[in-house]
Design a binder for these strands. Structure first.
Length: 852
RNA sequence: GCGGGCGUGAUGGAAUGGUAGACAUACCAGACUUAAAAUCUGUUGGGCCCUGUGCCCGUGUGGGUUCGAGUCCCACCGCCCGCACCA
């Protein structure tokens, strides 16, 4: 009897895999390729259970595909630029580069014991000049291709991180990392022309069948396509140059319900008025402030200022509408001006009520409805309504029909035109930070903004910087900044902004296909390895990273860095859930909450007690692992006490992969127990003598069913269900009295089926039982269809849909005979009580239903 | 507000429209043990008559489609997520 000692076998097999280089990906024309990628980590220095879960899922796929004979690419790298490194530099006085590279080393040593099937020879770090020099080269190519431009823009300024944020990085008026209230600043910034690809990025979503519908929908909403009418009101008493106000509306069918025109505080007309009128200036200033105060965001009070200017209604020039400056109108959507139709818009209704403007219904739910509305009437656009002030189409029609008719009518009468708009803005990429990829341009007094020459790349970050003063140290580094102009050779200054770190992660998947190449990519490699067949990561990247990466693949195709076939870089996407843990809380004498680490707590049933004092603590169920709540479980502790295979098995076993899984000590122990049990079975089989046993056929049938079920489970990301089947088969094998040869075949197959999840244990059993070569490269077992069908099947008999009896029949028995048998069953006869059945439904192999 | 998802035992969760609760946890009982741990075995949705190889109810609530619904359709309730003054 030997003992399962994961620490010993795991290290041993990892060494063998590394020695044989079996996970090294080499291009090969005669093998189908499979590219599996997990979202690469930020090198914080510590791996956590979320990493373990994410990379274990990828590893299951990778090992499974390898066993199926695919040429698998499964690389790993580091999303290594970012603010945390600078914060560490400020707090601890360590250079961001030193901190980052040390963290990478630390995390690698923590990841290696998990035994992932990674090709470490392709490792990349985005902060390495060998990575970012290619990013700089592509940046220059993209400027040439017109995909990047510079403009003066009002930007989101994070006053804590002292940098600009993209619109996507502002959440409810706050910086996504710092949580600080974002201010508005006007700066000259670099932008990717992602908005030019709005339609393309939207319509291509349809082709991403193997993406979660949820993610596609989130992107669709984010791109925010709308169809509407753009037209101009002519003004009365307006300042010069403003004899027209362009507006955009998605509800042109409500044009006859217009009662005011609203313009943004940032509208050009508002800016003109602001200059000459103190009251306007005061109001506009208030609005700008108001946009970012917490109170304004919460209450959302609609404020307006009557400019005194009037506009003429396009259909009836005698009708004049007032022009308000309103705080809720955004300059960067549509034209920065709207017409208000209070009857059919909740916000306009609120505004009209406040400023005593008319509320004019254009349509009603029925012909006899009251025209005087007490609240805005906003039915779904697919609902038929009755138009009392329609001007195009039928009286009874849906909103959509009316909108189409209204646009057609307006176009043919010279009132504006139908326009499609998108919510998606261009992606501002400039960041006023040190630890990022330098933007490779030079500012020359003579030549203006000039891209650096490609032969001068990389523009490397200077090493000698200090972080004792807030702001970007590059600004202060005159020696680094001063450089000859690439165009005229005169002394000029480098750009000190660096790129948003989302740029780094927008193309790393492509770099992995040729990680050491002198060019950003190599066409043959990209053509062979792209696309990523399976991408796995957190749903938190559903919009930002995945949208940027999709855009970047297109931009790289245009600039000749990716083949056309790779413009949608991720064929299949899987978004996995988090690892959660209960929180253990007590209160101190001052009534403040105290959070206890799981290892300080002993659980008994549904109660938990502190190990040292025995005091009971409150259990708060399942929350995301968080340092502030002390509900973290360190993977390293789990590996040292149970082994990597246990950690891997457990994170897959308890919940479907797309959902959160709660880490529990008992669950981890159960996983470990199970692996020991498998080990012991293998041990027992080894010690068996060769005498014939009983039930060989039953064991083989169970084995083939398990092969079938587990294979299906892995294919469909049903890892938890696959594991349940493996538990079942283990129990069967444990009790089996079959002969040694058959049991040996069964344990070897079990090891193979487990090998994607618990590769070390599987490898060891394989070797012990005389498996050929490594289990990692052994061909995946095939289920024999003939073995999946039993000779006899148990059919439940229902009467009126309720189960009443069971019969055991030969599998190939025909319907008529089954029906006869079922009707002859005593329970059925008793229930029928002499009555003839109305109908008997026989589903062969499934069920019999007798209808009375 | 708009969009989407999900509601199944004490718990995590199984279930191509076909025996609801697989598998695991927890609990309880038993074997082994001086004892404990470990290991192994067994029970566990609720109720009724406990006589069964018995009957009734049961997948958030109410309705519908179907021979048959956790699964499909409609309405409602609850929870979760995304977006949000988007014209």
């Amino acid at each position: 009897m030997t003992r399962y000692t994961p620490s010993e076998i795991e290290a041993r097999w990892q060494a063998v895999w590394e020695r044989d280089g079996i996970f090294r990906a080499v291009r090969s024309a005669d093998k189908p390729k499979y590219y599996v990628l997990e979202m690469f980590p930020y090198p914080s220095g510590r791996i956590h259970m979320g990493h373990v879960r994410n990379y274990t899922m990828g590893d299951v796929i990778s090992r499974y595909k390898l066993a199926q004979g695919f040429n698998v690419l499964h690389p790993m790298g580091w999303d290594a630029f970012g603010l945390a490194a600078e914060n560490a530099a400020m707090q601890k006085g360590i250079h961001p580069g030193v901190w980052t590279y040390q963290n990478i080393e630390d995390m690698k040593t923590q990841m290696k014991p998990l035994g992932f099937s990674l090709d470490w020879s392709r490792e990349i770090a985005t902060c390495h000049p060998e990575y970012y020099r290619h990013q700089q080269a592509m940046f220059i190519d993209m400027i040439d291709a017109g995909l990047i431009y510079r403009k003066n823009a009002v930007v989101n300024w994070d006053p804590v991180d002292m940098t600009v944020l993209a619109n996507e990085q502002v959440e409810q008026g706050r910086g996504w990392r710092s949580g600080a209230l974002v201010e508005r600043r006007e700066l000259t910034q670099w932008f990717f022309k992602i908005s030019d690809y709005s339609e393309e990025l939207l319509s291509a979503l349809d082709g991403l069948e193997n993406w979660p519908a949820k993610v596609r929908l989130m992107q669709e909403n984010w791109i925010g396509k709308s169809r509407g009418l753009q037209f101009a009101f002519s003004t009365v008493d307006a300042p010069e140059g403003h004899d027209r106000i362009e507006v955009y509306t998605t509800r042109p069918d409500t044009l006859l319900g217009a009662s005011f025109v609203g313009i943004s505080p940032d509208h050009p007309l508002a800016k003109v008025l602001e200059r000459d009128d103190e009251a306007v200036a005061a109001f506009v200033t208030e609005c700008r402030k108001g946009g970012t105060t917490e109170e304004a965001i919460e209450t959302g009070e609609k404020l307006g200022f009557d400019t005194g200017i009037r506009v003429r209604h396009p259909f009836d020039t005698a009708q004049e509408l007032p022009v308000y400056i309103a705080n809720f109108i955004l300059m960067d959507y549509g034209t920065g001006a709207v017409f208000g139709c209070p009857a059919h818009d909740v916000r306009d209704f609120e505004f009209a009520t406040k400023y005593d403007l008319p509320i004019i219904a254009t349509f009603l739910p029925s012909e006899d409805s009251d025209e005087n509305l007490s609240e805005a009437f906003v039915p779904a656009k697919t609902e038929k309504v009755f138009y009392i002030r329609g001007f195009a189409g039928e009286s009874w029609q849906t909103g959509n029909e009316a909108i189409d008719a209204a646009i057609a009518f307006c176009e043919s009468n010279g009132v504006g035109q139908g326009v499609t708009k998108y919510r998606l803005r261009d992606w501002g990429l400039s960041r006023q930070r040190y630890w990022g990829c330098p933007i490779p341009v030079v500012h020359c007094d003579e030549c203006g903004v000039v891209p650096e020459k490609k032969e001068n790349l990389p523009v490397k970050l200077p090493e000698d910087v200090s972080f004792d003063i807030p702001g970007n140290p590059l600004d202060r580094h005159m020696e680094w900044r001063t450089t000859p102009c690439p165009a005229c050779g005169k002394q000029a200054l480098r750009e000190t902004d660096t790129m948003d770190t989302f740029v780094d992660s927008s193309w790393y998947y492509a770099r992995f296909t040729a990680p050491r190449a002198d060019t950003p990519t190599v066409m043959e490699d990209a053509e062979y390895w792209m696309n990523v067949d399976q991408y796995i990561g957190g749903v938190e990247h559903a919009i930002l990273h995945l949208l940027y990466a999709r855009f970047f693949a297109r931009a790289m195709q245009i600039t000749g860095h990716l083949p056309k076939s790779a413009i949608e870089p991720f064929d299949a996407l899987f978004t996995q859930g988090m690892v959660t843990h209960a929180i253990y809380r007590s209160t101190d004498t001052g009534g403040r909450p105290v959070f206890h680490y799981p290892e300080e707590v002993e659980t008994k049933g549904d109660k938990a007690f502190l190990e040292d004092s025995g005091a009971e603590v409150e259990i708060i169920p399942s929350a995301k692992m968080s340092k502030s709540k002390n509900n973290v479980v360190d993977p390293l502790n789990i590996i040292s006490s149970f082994g990597a295979d246990t950690a891997r098995w457990f994170v897959l076993s308890d919940s479907p992969p797309e959902r959160d899984v709660e880490w529990t000590a008992s669950g981890a122990e159960a996983a470990h127990k199970h692996l020991s049990r498998v080990w012991n079975i293998s041990d027992r089989i080894t010690a068996m003598d060769d005498a014939a046993g009983t039930g060989d056929d039953d064991l083989l049938r169970a084995m083939h069913k398990t092969i079938h079920d587990v294979t299906m489970g892995i294919e469909s990301f049903g890892f938890n269900a696959a594991i349940a089947k493996l538990y079942g088969f283990t129990a069967t094998l444990q009790k089996s009295t079959a002969g040694k040869t058959i049991q040996r075949e069964a344990i070897k197959t079990l090891a193979q089926l487990m090998s994607p999840m618990t590769p070390h244990l599987a490898e060891d059993i394989w070797a012990t039982q005389g498996g050929e070569g490594l289990i990692a490269t052994a061909p995946w077992p095939q289920a024999d269809d003939a073995m999946l069908v039993d000779d006899t099947v148990t059919l439940p008999i229902q009467v009126n849909g309720k189960r009443r009896a069971e019969i055991e029949v030969p599998a190939e028995m025909n319907k008529d005979e089954i029906e006869k048998l079922a009707l002859a069953h005593e329970a059925v006869i008793r229930i029928l009580d002499g009555n003839a059945p109305k109908k008997v439904i026989v589903v062969p192999g499934r069920i019999v239903n007798v209808v009375v």
